[in-house]
């Protein structure tokens, strides 16, 4: 076991650990999953060293388990995130985030002339490129890329 890592964010007895979040997107993950609105005990560490990501973040949420659909919502900001499901301090299951084919809500369309930025219409996108996570608006058909992504 990696003691250093263990010290930086303490272990939880039951719940979910989300690892390999790009450090700059930690708070987006928190917001997308609504972690800022739940009463559970949550600990996180950020700017941890990562060979893969440079700087990564990790979140541990006590007594909370996610549905597959729910967790895929973070794919746009943390496509390489790994989840460990913890029961009695033991990892009982591992999950990888999958980039879904469609994304509803979450992201704003980058096109200021799009109907979703004028009327009460929930933005909907087809994922045009799963690797770079480029989104094609269901309404105005314009592409919103990672660089221009804004969250609702």
């Amino acid at each position: 076991m990696n003691d250093k890592k263990h010290l930086s964010v303490s272990a939880i007895q039951n719940g979910t650990v989300i690892d390999h979040i790009p450090a700059q997107n930690l708070f987006k993950v928190i917001s997308i999953l609504g972690l800022d609105k739940i009463p559970n005990l949550i600990t996180f560490g950020t700017n941890l060293e990562s060979k893969q990501l440079g700087r990564k973040a990790i979140v541990k949420i006590a007594d909370k388990y996610f549905e597959r659909e729910e967790i895929n919502r973070i794919a746009i900001v943390a496509p390489h995130a790994k989840l460990n499901i913890i029961k009695e301090y033991v990892v009982v299951e591992k999950m990888l985030v999958e980039v879904p084919d469609e994304i509803k809500g979450i992201v704003k369309c980058v096109n200021p002339k799009c109907i979703t930025n004028f009327e009460n219409v929930t933005p909907k996108f087809k994922v045009a490129d799963k690797k770079s996570v480029a989104l094609k608006c269901h309404y105005c058909e314009k592409i919103t890329d990672q660089e221009h992504m804004e969250y609702r």
């Binding site: 369309c109 096109n111 002339k113 799009c114 109907i115 979703t116 004028f118 009327e119 219409v121 608006c137 269901h138 309404y139 105005c140 058909e141 314009k142």
Partner: peptide
């Protein structure tokens, strides 16, 4: 309509 995506909506 001048707004893009208005027809789909």
């Amino acid at each position: 309509h001048p707004v893009e995506g208005s027809a789909r909506f």
